[in-house]
Write a protein that binds this DNA or RNA. Sequence first.
DNA 1: TCCTCGACGACCAGAATACGCATGGCGGAA
DNA 2: TTCCGCCATGCGTATTCTGGTCGTCGAGGA
Lengths: 228, 228
Amino acid sequence: MRILVVEDDANLNRQLADTLKEAGYVVDQAFDGEEGHYLGDSEPYDAIILDIGLPEMDGITVLEKWRADGKVMPVLILTARDRWSDKVAGIDAGADDYVTKPFHVEEVLARIRALIRRAAGHATSEIVCGPVRLDTKGSKATMNGVALKLTSHEFRLLSYLMHHMGQVVSRTELVEHMYDQDFDRDSNTIEVFVGRLRKKIGNDLIETVRGLGYRMQAPGAAGKDARP
Amino acid sequence: MRILVVEDDANLNRQLADTLKEAGYVVDQAFDGEEGHYLGDSEPYDAIILDIGLPEMDGITVLEKWRADGKVMPVLILTARDRWSDKVAGIDAGADDYVTKPFHVEEVLARIRALIRRAAGHATSEIVCGPVRLDTKGSKATMNGVALKLTSHEFRLLSYLMHHMGQVVSRTELVEHMYDQDFDRDSNTIEVFVGRLRKKIGNDLIETVRGLGYRMQAPGAAGKDARP
DNA sequence: TCCTCGACGACCAGAATACGCATGGCGGAA
DNA sequence: TTCCGCCATGCGTATTCTGGTCGTCGAGGA
C-alpha cells in the first residue's frame, strides 16, 4: 500500500511518514501544494494525507483539481480544530475523511486503514480468505490460526492481494503499490515474491491469470454470485 | 434514502431526525442499543447514525454485531470529543466515519451525503448476457454460475463483445481493440478466437453477420433485427 | 424455381512464441 | 554474520498464430 503525505510542516510530515512506514506502508512525501498535486496526479496512491494550509497551492484547490481530473483515491485532510468550515469545504471538495489538528497519530493510522479497506469494499479491519486471515490493524497475518512469518515485502504483497480479493492484479500494479517511485520494471521480483508467498500459504490461494496477473481467492469460492 | 438514528438522548435524536427529514431523507429512530441493533439488522437502511454511549448495548458492540452478520451499510458514529480511543475502536470495528460531540448539524449532513454517495460507487460492474456473466472488475466470466476458463485473448474478445451487446462488431474493430498496434489484418485470428469462444459458451450467443462481423445477444432477444 | 458459382467463414492441427516459475548467486542492511 | 531483497538464467508449458481445407450462404442466370 502506497501513501502520499502532503504537509508543509517538515516535522509533522516526517513524523507521519515514519509512523506509516513502521506500519508497513510505502510512503512518498510532498512539502507544498504544487509538488503534492503533481505526485498525486501522476502516481497511483492507495490513500493521500493532505494538509489544508499549504504554500504554493491551497489544499482544497489541490483536492478539487484531482477530483476534476477524475482521480478517486481516498483523501484524508488535516484541518485546524477551530476551522470547522474547512472540514465542510473539504468534504464537499471530495475529501473522504478529515482529522483535526492537533491529533493522535494512532487516529490518523486508524483512519487511513479504514479508508483503504473501505476503498477495497471491506467493512471490518480483518480480511479473510479461506484459511488466511489478514489483520490490517496489527499488520499481521495468520493461517489456520497460526501466525505467518512473512518478510515485509511478502506482507505487502499479501496485503495488496487480499485488499483486492477476487480481482486480477497486474504485475505493474503490484510494483507500483509495493515500491516508491522509479523501480526497474524489467525484473521478475514480483514473480519471485509470489513464489515465496505461495510456499508459505499454499498454491491454491493465489491463482495466476496468464498474461494478466494474479488473483487471490478462496479455493472453494467458484461460482459465488454477486447477488445470491 | 432511508436512515436510522440510534441515540439515547431524546432531544439530540429528534434534532437529528428533523434535520434529516428536512433534507429529504426517510428517518427511523432508536433510543437504545438493543432496539438499534434489531432495526439495523432487519431493515435495509442506506446509512446509520450510531451513538457510542448507549444503554442496553454499547454502540461498538452493536456495530460489531452488524458487521459480523455481513451488513455493509455505511455507519457514522457519534463520540465524545475527549474519547479519541473510542474513535479508533469504532473505526476498527467497521465504522465508516465519525463525528465528535458537540457537532454542527450541517457537518453530520455533509458526512451522511458523502457516505451515501461513496456507497453508491461500490456497485459491482457486471454485464449479463443470457447465461453468461462478465465481471469486468475481476476479469472473470461465469456461465450458469460456473467459472469459465478463458485465455486472456478469449476474455478480451468476450469482454468487447459484451460491452457492445446487440451491436454488430466488425473484425477490424475487434483487431484494433484486442491488439496494440499494427497487426497483420490478413490473418484469421479473430475467426479462430470466435470459434474457440463459441466452443466454451455455446453457439447461440455470438451471431455472425455475414460480411459485417459478429453480434452478441441473448438468445431469447431475437427478432430485434437491425436489417429487415 | 432451381442450379451453379464465387466468396466468406468455420474448423483443424502443427509450429513458434511468450510467459511464468524455480533456482542460485550477489550485494546490502539489520 | 545472517537474513532479506534483487537479478540472471534456463526450462517447461500454455497460448497464440499460420496455413490449409471444408462447409455454407447468397446472388444471378437458366
